[in-house]
Design a protein around this nucleic acid. Structure first.
Length: 277
DNA sequence: AAGCCTACCTGTTGGC
DNA sequence: TGCCAACAGGTAGGCT
């Protein structure tokens, strides 16, 4: 579920509440997530103030004085702030108990499929950017350095379909399966086009399309296909304005041609055969 | 280096 | 109605 917009919507809902909050407890369901929970995590975090709430790609980063807590939402995860007495349900796999001002609240990770992760990175292990999970990520799409020149340079040696290369995340981060189809529609580029054959003007269009697509999605609270909710429990609305995603057989909103579905690897892709080349 | 495939896990959906 | 295969927002890691 969660692509960059969903993680950013989550972060925006947390940053003001959590910053300067103090971690006073932790709970783990005992069910395995993608990576093991550090065995001494509760002792390590107890009493520490949250100084930073940041994002890198689809990873949410909570900064405390002695390190970073790296959180990933996987395919079905969401983070919510709930009152301290709220009992966990069967899919609630991780809680951080945080004292914020006068009240105490729980930052709760709900994740039915358990592809999500909570990973501790001690400051002593070096800068957070060098963590193995983050080190190989591509540029942030809103970084000023993400421009047509950057994109063309980094696509030059790639023979695969542009859709697949965008999803890989080593060129630019945050573009998942929904927004890859949406951004390519917006740029007028066929998803199967060889990445290394995009002209400079098309790279420029794609940069703009990726930024505009992600910004729109953030403004609409992300996409909720099934279970994404923001930190306050609100679902996203972007899916209602999707141009192509999950619209196979329905008319293109621009030209009326039926939208087509296809697959790249094991992932579904949608495009307009008239608007995209 | 790049690309392809598998694995991780549970819930929902669509076809028979 | 019931059963079961297919599919779902991600991505590390292993192999070619």
């Amino acid at each position: 579920m969660p692509e960059l917009p969903e993680v950013e919507v989550t972060r925006l809902g947390l940053v003001d509440v959590l910053t300067h909050g103090v971690i006073v407890g932790m709970r783990w369901s005992g069910k395995a997530l993608r990576w093991p929970i550090a065995p001494d995590l509760e002792r390590v975090l107890a009493g520490q103030p949250i100084q930073r709430v940041e994002r890198r790609g689809k990873y949410l980063l909570l900064g405390v004085p002695t390190g970073w807590l790296i959180v990933h939402l996987g395919m079905s995860g969401s983070l919510r702030l709930v009152p301290a007495a709220t009992l966990p349900g069967p899919w609630d796999h991780f809680d951080l108990v945080v004292r914020t001002g006068r009240s105490t609240r729980i930052l709760r990770l709900t994740d039915p499929r358990r592809f999500g992760a909570v990973v501790w990175h001690p400051q002593a292990d070096g800068p957070i950017a060098s963590h193995p999970l983050l080190a190989r990520l591509g540029i942030e799409p809103f970084d000023p350095g993400f421009d047509a020149t950057y994109l063309r340079t980094h696509l030059r040696h790639r023979r695969g379909a542009i859709k697949t290369v965008l999803l890989a995340g080593d060129v630019v981060v945050g573009v998942g399966n929904i927004y890859a189809s949406e951004a390519l529609f917006r740029a007028g580029i066929h998803p199967s086009r060889a990445a290394g054959r995009l002209s400079a003007p098309r790279c420029a269009r794609l940069v703009d399309a990726i930024r505009a697509t992600l910004a729109d999605a953030i403004a609409q609270g992300g996409s909720t296909l099934r279970d994404f909710v923001a930190s306050n429990g609100d679902p996203g609305h972007f899916q209602l304005s999707a141009q192509v995603y999950d619209r196979a057989g329905q008319p293109c909103r621009v030209c009326g041609t039926p939208i087509r579905g296809m697959r790249h690897g094991q992932r579904s892709t949608y495009y307009c055969p008239h608007c995209q080349h």
